[in-house]
Design a binder for these strands. Structure first.
Lengths: 136, 136
DNA sequence: GTTAAAACCTATTGACATAGTAGGTAAAAG
DNA sequence: CTTTTACCTACTATGTCAATAGGTTTTAAC
């Protein structure tokens, strides 16, 4: 299940993409537009900064900006930045030890197929694909 | 993320399908073959019985059996029986109140598309699709 | 009818994640 | 030098996950 961290962060990224023309976007404005507590957004935004997806500038006239062109972001990398690797099943996690039953497990191929499906879905979606819905 | 409940339950169902020829299958045997604690399996199996996916018979010579033909089960209904509705995103949950931002939310269509993708994937997979892998 | 094998039932627990809140400090522009 | 903004540390309530523990009931076989 995609958590609020990932969902809200995606909305922040979209908000930044939409409001970039006037320079840095203050978090206060994002919080108001998105109707999300500014305090909570601070946490999410910190993770995005750490992951070099956005950058912040302090002081009056400060705020946040995207680091790259909007069309270069995909949804998968944003979600993974917030929630960690997009693992759908514990067996397939990077940290997981190789399961001793892997060779004879009837369900493993299913999980692999599912994992690929989800991964591809989110990595093929660009940030701008979501933006495009408004301007038809 | 698919939890052990769903994953183990699916293995139980496959085990039952594979070992049905000798009458009811005791949980003890399933626990040994699948290398899962019998005590934990009891919980999972109870949910499967409640959902009328399998039935149990007590006493000597007892055990569990599938309620229907193996090919009539799909993976989605098994997982949902164990983990509740296959919701990928809180916004779309049945219990969730209609979001006041639904009309102008740029991310909602994405979540809907994702939710459909996951749902269709699991509901199209039959139990026998997983079994087929062995007997080639 | 007694025994043994099986299902069935209730309760509890430790660990972790989620979704926040609270209360500050540092930087920078005017 | 004041205001606006980002940035930082800590805490907390709630819930879920993945089990474990310790029983009772049913039923076939002897």
């Amino acid at each position: 299940m995609i958590s609020t961290k990932g969902r809200y962060a995606l909305r922040v990224m979209l908000d930044l993409a939409e409001n970039a023309q006037n320079g840095p976007v203050p978090l206060k404005d994002i919080a108001e537009r998105q109707e999300i507590s500014k305090k909570y957004l601070e946490i999410l935004v910190r993770d995005l900064v750490k992951g070099k997806m956005i950058k912040g500038s302090s002081g009056k006239g400060g705020g946040y900006m995207l680091c790259r062109a909007p069309e270069s972001y995909n949804v998968g990398e944003i979600i993974e930045q917030m929630e960690g690797p997009l693992n759908t099943v514990a067996c397939l996690a990077e940290e997981a030890a190789e399961c001793p039953r892997a060779g004879r497990c009837l369900t493993l191929p299913l999980w692999r197929e599912y994992d690929n499906l989800v991964h591809d879905f989110f990595y093929q979606k660009k940030l701008t694909d979501l933006l495009a819905q408004t301007k038809h």
